[in-house]
Amino acid sequence: MSHDSYNDAYIREILNTVKTVAMVGASPQNVRPSYFVFKYLAERGYDMIPINPGQVGKSLLGKPFVTSLQEITRPIDMVDIFRSAEHVMPIVDIILTLNPLPKVVWMQLGVRHDEAAAKLEAAGIKVVMNRCPKIEYGRLSSEIQWMGVNSRTLSSKRAPIPTQGMRLSLNRSSVGGGSTTAADRVAQLNNKDKNDTA
């Protein structure tokens, strides 16, 4: 599938079904995006596992850090990769040795690796790249609208009052896709430029 843009149904289904999320590259520093994405997803009821070999022995918001994906003893629904593109392939190779395989591999905003994605998809794993699960969750639940962000969703139903640990409803009507037409167009052009120069 194309990874230039995603329709909301694809992202919504992922965020609605995964429960256990292992984050590769989770940072204990509270100003790093990995920290606050971890925290946000934990607050929204996901079972979060932080992976960072440099932090083993410590914990992140009460969850002990682990060294690697192989160390995790329970099934992982989704791996969230918070590492830059050049570190992705070795992580993907480890993911493909897991049993059971995760259902989803998510690469963060700014991270895209088409070869790795193809390898994962060949094994039946869903892939999201260059997106942030916090932003997408906030968008589909409309929580992000407080920041003036175009959620690209509509609803005539009463909004929930979000509380700690609560999973929000993601069943708003979508306005035609995850990002805007213009932003998708530019992402597509930028990716084409990258491939042309590579």
């Binding site: 003036g148 962000v149 175009n150 690209r152 213009a182």
Partner: peptide, 13 residues
């Protein structure tokens, strides 16, 4: 903000 962003086809306002 979201309304104008949506009408203009922007990501945020």
């Amino acid at each position: 903000e979201e309304r104008v962003a949506a009408l203009e086809g922007g990501t945020a306002a």
